[in-house]
């Protein structure tokens, strides 16, 4: 899922300073399940903002809405009417949702209430860790299903490096060395010999290095 964190109340208050009527729009997908921008977080933030701005002597009118999936126009249509009543939208979706809202409703500014952080997995209650960097050319088949791009601090393709100590990465004793994990997994799978193969330099053009990415599926497109 896309994992995000809410911005601080102070930062949100500063962003909203020029506006009086605010619609907070949550998203029912990734940010709901990582407890950053679902219906509940919208209600909590709205309440906190109403109280904070009230205590400062300038109570803002805060409205609330949550759409199923803010990164698709069809779902955002459901709140089009509410936009007429407000000065600004504060989105509690990921950066994709914020941009979709700005594209879809160009007359209305949509501000980000979250910091979109990474593509990750909840490993235990309240803990999320990065698992994929969307490099566009998956190498998991050769690394025992453990991603060295997202999980090795240096994104090494032929690891580990000298900074791997006792199974941990040199950047932080709490960060496991991805290449140690890959080695252990390949050993358990009886496929250690596959690691003797030297991975060639990766073509990063499929990642961000090739500029903004786009997929066009002609088989799915509607005829123009």
């Amino acid at each position: 899922m896309i994992v995000a964190e809410q911005k601080s109340l102070d930062e949100i208050k500063t962003m909203l300073a020029p506006y009086q009527k605010v619609l907070i729009v949550g998203c029912g997908t990734c940010v709901t399940v990582c407890f950053a921008g679902g219906e509940k977080e919208v209600a909590i933030l709205a309440s906190a903002l109403r109280m904070a701005t009230g205590l400062e002597g300038n109570p803002k009118q805060i409205m609330e809405a949550t759409v199923q999936r803010q990164c698709e126009y069809e779902y955002n249509e459901a709140i089009a009417d509410k936009l007429k009543e407000v000065d600004v939208v504060l989105s509690l979706a990921c950066g994709i949702g914020v941009q979709t809202m700005n594209e879809q409703f160009p007359e209305m500014l949509t501000l980000p209430g979250l910091n979109t952080t990474f593509l990750g997995q909840p490993t235990e209650q309240g803990v999320w860790v990065e698992r994929c960097q969307a490099c566009g050319n998956c190498v998991l088949a050769t690394t025992g299903g453990i991603c060295p791009i997202a999980r090795c601090s240096k994104s090494l393709l032929n690891g580990p490096c000298g900074g791997s100590q006792g199974g941990k990465c040199e950047i932080d004793p709490d960060v496991p060395c991805a290449w140690q994990q890959i080695y252990d997994r390949m050993k358990a799978l009886g496929r250690l010999e596959a690691l003797l193969e030297v991975a060639e330099a990766k073509d990063w053009r499929t990642s961000r290095d090739g500029g903004p990415r786009k997929i066009v599926r002609e088989d799915l497109r509607l005829e123009k």
Partner: peptide, 11 residues
């Protein structure tokens, strides 16, 4: 009891 019940009460 959820955080939102407590916030609403204060509001």
């Amino acid at each position: 009891v959820d955080i939102i019940h407590i916030l609403r009460a204060f509001e």
